[in-house]
Amino acid sequence: MASLNVFRKPLYLHSTQPMTGFTRNGYCEVPPSDSGNHSVAAVLSDEFLDYSASQGNDLRSIGLKGGCKWCVCATRWKEALVASKGGKGVGEEVVPKVYLNMTNEKALEKISLEDLKRFAVDKEV
């Protein structure tokens, strides 16, 4: 069965430059072996990269930089969202923008569609 996006439609390709996805096929698929739920089709910001590094996952160490498209763990994306609301000097710019049509429906296990839509750069197609 083909992977579905958050609208329960076929999942769109997210990025091949850099090649992303848990299986490195360009899609934010979540196979059973992906315990991290790399389902969120994000555009990385420098603020998110700093935040992720501060949480122990330095994505710059694998060559990523601000502006790269990457399949982000749903939990890390949600942590950034919660941090942005926590009043600890972390603003909303830490939360990566998302492509809804490229975000796997498995993201909805951790994140509400409403929260994803707040940071969306696309609409349902």
Rank of each mutant, 00 (worst) to 15 (best):
D58N: 15
D58V: 07
D58Q: 13
L59K: 08
L59F: 14
L59N: 02
L59S: 07
R60V: 08
R60G: 09
R60P: 08
R60Q: 12
S61W: 05
S61L: 13
S61E: 14
S61Q: 12
S61K: 14
S61H: 11
I62A: 13
I62V: 15
I62L: 15
I62D: 15
G63Y: 04
G63A: 00
G63M: 00
L64P: 03
L64E: 02
L64T: 03
L64S: 07
L64H: 00
L64N: 03
K65P: 06
K65N: 10
K65L: 08
K65F: 08
K65T: 09
K65M: 11
K65D: 06
G66L: 11
G66T: 12
G66M: 14
G66Q: 12
G67W: 13
G67I: 05
G67L: 08
C68N: 14
C68A: 14
C68F: 14
K69M: 12
K69W: 10
K69S: 14
K69L: 14
K69A: 11
K69D: 03
W70C: 07
W70M: 06
W70Q: 04
W70H: 14
W70I: 06
W70R: 05
W70Y: 15
C71E: 08
C71W: 03
C71H: 01
C71Y: 08
C71F: 08
C71V: 11
V72H: 03
V72W: 04
V72K: 02
C73I: 09
C73F: 12
C73R: 01
C73N: 05
C73A: 15
A74W: 01
A74M: 02
A74I: 03
A74Y: 05
A74S: 15
A74K: 02
T75Y: 00
T75S: 09
T75W: 09
T75L: 01
R76H: 12
W77M: 09
W77A: 07
K78V: 03
K78W: 08
K78M: 14
K78Y: 05
E79S: 06
E79R: 02
E79K: 01
A80H: 11
A80N: 13
L81H: 07
L81D: 06
L81I: 05
L81M: 07
L81Q: 01
L81G: 00
V82E: 12
V82Y: 02
S84N: 02
S84Q: 11
S84M: 09
S84W: 07
S84Y: 06
S84G: 11
K85C: 04
K85W: 11
G86L: 05
G86A: 14
G86E: 15
G86T: 02
G87L: 12
G87M: 08
G87S: 04
G87E: 03
G87I: 07
